[in-house]
Design a binder for these strands. Structure first.
Length: 425
RNA sequence: GGAGAGAUGGCAGAGUGGUCGAUUGCGGCGGUCUUGAAAACCGUUGUACCGAGAGGUACCGGGGGUUCGAAUCCCUCUCUCUCCGCCA
């Protein structure tokens, strides 16, 4: 979320920047400034009174010691009115503070200056492409048919056990999941990321910290008995490692990676978008997260994009990198690059990674700060994350792009992870 | 799930109603001494908000209450530990 003081000092900048995200912030910004000023006034009043109250209380202590009960009672009378006034001011303060907090979370993050204007997906900028489009054999099939032909994934069985969007992977289908997870984790580790295994359920504070709550509540599965949320991405538990933490400036950037299953309700999705592996309620993903110095966070972003690029290249998948336009960006992001791979039989691009710099937006919620050497006050850090990578669409692209009349050819980098198997027949 | 104990600053650990943001030790930082280091000694060492500043306010797991005054008393929630039960 945006810092209140920043909003107060830069109202026009906030409004202008958020217009790029097609968000009309004027009314909220004006209200925030008004409330913020009022809150400070009330705070000043309340604190002046409290100071007086503290003074009298100390005095009473002295008088009691001296045994001067008459003056004690006199002093006590003084506090009655003060107490009431303090209560009134504090009540108003709490009210305003709550209202401010509610407004504050309505404002999206400001887009970085690189973010192109635009409404939706069609306005995203293609900043890089790579790989070569495969020439598929006669009678090439989409991945859901291949999955069933080679008995790799059973969608119907998943429907029986749970429901749509919860496939059962079998045999090489299951092994290729495991292979990809290990491949991605090994790669991340080699690039300096610390591997962690986070919880798959998180509490409300964590959901708030990364920005899923309060507004994206409907996208997460929720256990109401214990008030816990199933994670939609490892970003949530991993980033929340750093909630309420002050790190050393010299340790930045802090690079963390985690594999997790991800759970998304995906309310409102339908049609070809949810066919086969295109969109699932449960899927596997390896996530990379960085905590960075504010001056260096765009270096981190570039570093992460370059890293993800090596992954899709090693898998031999044709890909393109998009810089998302204002209208297509997430609420929390300042700059996002999406990776898409070509799904040759479906003849469409599939998003397999989204790499974002959140600047101080998450860190402000998280109270994630760092201490720079030689500087007294801790400062808010920057956070970034990216998929590296999400499995299902990678699997879809591999199945489709690597199909031959003899079977599915295994990408070279995965062969050692599949016990030397070079083709799935 | 049942019974009991507990939660204090980076860590350990005092403090059971009055000047306590908090004794002390360790650790960290700065200094003296030393060719350098260690040891010893001296000093310093939380965060947030308000304020131009002086300074003020809040925070002793979270929330609420009693009181002129709460780390300290009461209620409640969460978590940790010990024992019992159950168990991958």
């Amino acid at each position: 979320m945006l810092n209140l003081k920043f909003i107060q000092d830069n109202p026009e900048l906030v409004i202008e920047k958020l217009a790029v995200k097609r968000f009309d912030a004027r009314a909220i910004v004006e209200k925030v400034i008004e409330l913020y000023q009022r809150r400070n006034e009330v705070q000043n009043e309340a604190e002046t009174q409290k100071a007086e109250m503290n003074r009298i209380s100390r005095e009473i202590g002295q008088l009691m010691k001296a045994g001067n009960m008459e003056e004690v009672n006199l002093a006590k009378e003084q506090t009655v009115r003060l107490k009431e006034q303090i209560k009134t001011f504090e009540g108003e303060f709490d009210l305003i503070d709550e209202e401010l907090a509610q407004l504050q979370v309505l404002l999206p993050n400001l887009p970085a200056s690189l973010v192109p204007p635009g409404k939706g997906a069609e306005d995203n900028q293609i900043v890089a492409t790579g790989g070569t489009m495969p020439i598929l054999p006669e009678g090439a099939k989409p991945h859901w048919e291949l999955a069933s032909q080679y008995d790799l994934i059973d969608f119907e069985l998943g429907v029986k056990i749970t429901g749509a969007g919860f496939p059962v992977y079998k045999g090489f289908g299951a092994r290729i999941q495991r292979a990809l997870i290990n491949f991605f984790l090994d790669q991340a580790r080699e690039h300096g990321y610390l591997e962690v295994q986070p919880p798959y359920l998180v509490n409300e504070a964590s959901g708030f910290g990364t920005g899923q709550l309060p507004d994206k509540e409907g996208q997460m599965y929720h256990d109401s008995t214990d008030n816990l949320y199933l994670i939609p991405t490892a970003e949530v538990p991993v980033t929340n490692i750093f909630r309420d933490v002050i790190v050393e400036g010299k340790d930045l950037p802090i690079k963390t990676t985690a594999y997790s299953a991800c759970f998304r309700r995906e309310a409102g999705s339908y049609g070809k978008d949810v066919r086969g592996l295109n969109r699932l309620h449960q899927f596997d993903k390896v996530e990379i997260v960085q905590v960075a110095h504010p001056d260096k966070s765009y270096d981190s972003l570039n570093d992460m994009v370059a890293y993800v690029q090596t992954l899709v290249e090693k898998l031999g998948l044709p890909y393109r990198i998009l810089r998302l336009c204002g209208g297509d960006m997430s609420f929390t992001s300042a700059l996002t690059y999406d990776f898409e791979v070509w799904s040759a039989a479906q003849e469409r691009w599939l998003e397999v990674s989204s790499v974002s710099n959140f600047e101080s937006f998450q860190a402000t919620r998280l109270k994630l700060r760092f201490r720079e050497e030689g500087r007294a006050k801790p400062m808010i850090a920057h956070t970034l994350n990216g998929s590296a990578l999400a499995l299902p669409r990678i699997v879809a692209a591999i199945l489709e792009n690597y199909q031959t009349p003899e079977g599915i050819v295994v990408p070279k980098v995965l062969v050692p992870y599949l016990g030397g198997c070079e083709i799935i027949r």
